[in-house]
Design a protein around this nucleic acid. Structure first.
Lengths: 314, 314
DNA sequence: TTGACTTTATAACAAATACCTATAGGATAG
DNA sequence: CTATCCTATAGGTATTTGTTATAAAGTCAA
């Protein structure tokens, strides 16, 4: 049984006339007779009682047309639905994000996306870098806002922007008291007590790497899974920490540390990561485009990169 | 879009593997790739995210499979339903009948039919000969129990049985008193008061024709649309009437006339009439077969005819 | 890193089938 | 009884589906 045959049969039933039905179907009448005969033979029932001057439905025909019409309707609905999806009028997108970026970047991006593609159902997943990489490569998230380096080889990414890294110290810290605003040489921090993020979070790795490049292993006095907490702990004098400039608070807010620039202006690169694949989903591409556009409008230091797996360690 | 393609897509989704799906579909893997590509191109969406070691549904694919499965299920149900109809497990039959035959013949036939074909919905329409012919030729009834002659040229028929015609007279009628049981010569009845059925009923015509063949026009003293009423009126002495032997009552029943045989043993032929058409519906044929069989089992004088339009006036 | 082994996509040819034109077969209407 | 209308059938053409062979790309093990 073929959809074409269902369509033909329904048309004959509507016209009660083979020749007229054939005309409306833009085929020759013999083709129509042939196809219907074939269908009837396959089904084992006569659908129409034909005589030379009349075409009437048999009982089988009545039942058939009712069902066939329903099937054809559903096929039409299916094509329309696929069309909607292809035009991004409908869809689903699961965005992964680190808590930091979730709080600081997504509020600029998600509303713009919602405005451009109101039919696409957006879901946000916030987790650690390690878990987001796994989610994205396994397809649980379609796209994730992460930082370089991306470890999972199944992921591809597009750089978004470079973000400066600062040193957060208590206000009464000697480095802040002596010459506030002067870039700090990381090598000077060899004996400082560091507060770090817990394992699995990319910024912990970045912090450790900064120390190692300056020639020492930092003394870790505290670990938290929340960088905001770390910032507050620094403010209270528990230790010092590197932080991405994004989360720097205004001085008027309680428990805000002092921020010092670092020598060499180290930075991290925020990227949108997605699964490597021959065809990138239109929805993912749309999210990418909207994100770039939204950040550009905010006047942020966008990286206009020829995207692709550069895998440079930043 | 073709049902074949829906089926292919659903199978790939189930197997998550093109080659295995192709195997189960008994086609070569390239055919499957081709058909799916064609489908995706037509729909304008990617249904599967393929990589060399995995095949996963896209969002469009998920939606598609849900709908496609429903469509395929309905197509299957449709074929099963048509199969049921073709095997007479399901159907509809509207049987037309004269009130007389409805009361005397159908009780022997309908239960047998119901037993053989419990899935076929039976409807009974009782009306006059004239209207039943029209109903049957127009398709409002599928088959009708009538008597010859059949006037409508659009109808074909199969003879069932020959039924003797008797004369009903009051018990105190001279013909009954003088020589009860002796065949009556219709020519003797020239001056008798006749009670007849009303216009449009075949038995009225048969009665008139009997008189005419005997050389006279009967004197009609009363007309009724109900032959049972006529019989009772004869019993009370209102007049005489021809009756089909089928309706003869037992003498013990009140208002029962006396029955006298007629010279030349005139009779009428009961037939099953149905529309002329190249293909006779299986259900109609089944009813025909069951009726013949049921009457044969009752030991009735069945006409084992080479059916067909003999159109003899009987 | 290389080489064997997957898996899907593409190319070119073969087989199936849907469509076309022409015409037969039946029935109705003037 | 002829003219006309309608569906069915026959035979040829063109499209399409399927097949085999092979490419492209990725995984796994040595």
């Amino acid at each position: 049984m073929e959809l074409r045959q269902l369509n033909y049969a329904v048309k004959i039933a509507a016209e009660k006339h083979f020749s007229r039905a054939a005309e409306k179907l833009h085929i020759a009448q013999p083709s129509l007779s042939q196809q219907l005969s074939k269908l009837e033979k396959e089904l084992g029932v006569l659908l129409f009682q034909r005589s030379t001057n009349s075409v009437e439905l048999t009982y089988a025909g009545e039942v058939f047309m009712e069902r066939a019409q329903a099937i054809l309707d559903q096929v039409n609905q299916l094509t329309r639905e696929m069309e909607d999806i292809s035009q991004l009028k409908k869809g689903r997108l699961v965005v992964g994000s680190l808590p930091i970026t979730g709080a600081h970047m997504l509020p600029r991006v998600l509303p713009a996306f919602r405005r451009s593609y109101p039919g696409i159902e957006l879901t946000l997943v916030e987790d650690t870098t390690a878990r987001l990489e796994k989610f994205t490569s396994s397809g649980q998230t379609d796209i994730a806002i992460l930082t370089l380096p991306i470890e999972d080889p199944a992921l591809d990414y597009t750089p978004l922007l470079r973000e400066e890294l600062w040193l957060a110290v208590p206000h009464d810290h000697p480095l802040n008291l002596r010459n506030p605003g002067t870039p700090v040489d990381i090598a000077q921090l060899r004996n400082e007590p560091f507060i770090l993020l817990k394992m699995g979070q990319a910024f912990r790795k970045i912090s450790l790497e900064l120390c190692r490049q300056a020639g020492f292993e930092p003394t870790i006095v505290f670990e938290s899974s929340n960088i905001e907490t770390i910032q507050s702990l620094v403010a209270t004098g528990m230790g010092i920490a590197f932080i991405p400039s994004m989360i720097a608070r205004d001085a008027s807010i309680p428990y805000t540390p002092a921020y010092l620039p670092l020598k060499g202006l180290p930075h991290r690169t925020l990227v949108l990561a997605y699964r490597k694949s021959r065809y990138r989903s239109r929805t993912v591409q749309a999210f990418l485009d909207v994100t770039m556009e939204a950040l550009r409008e905010e006047g942020l230091p966008l990286i206009e990169s020829a995207e692709g797996p550069g895998h440079s360690i930043d």
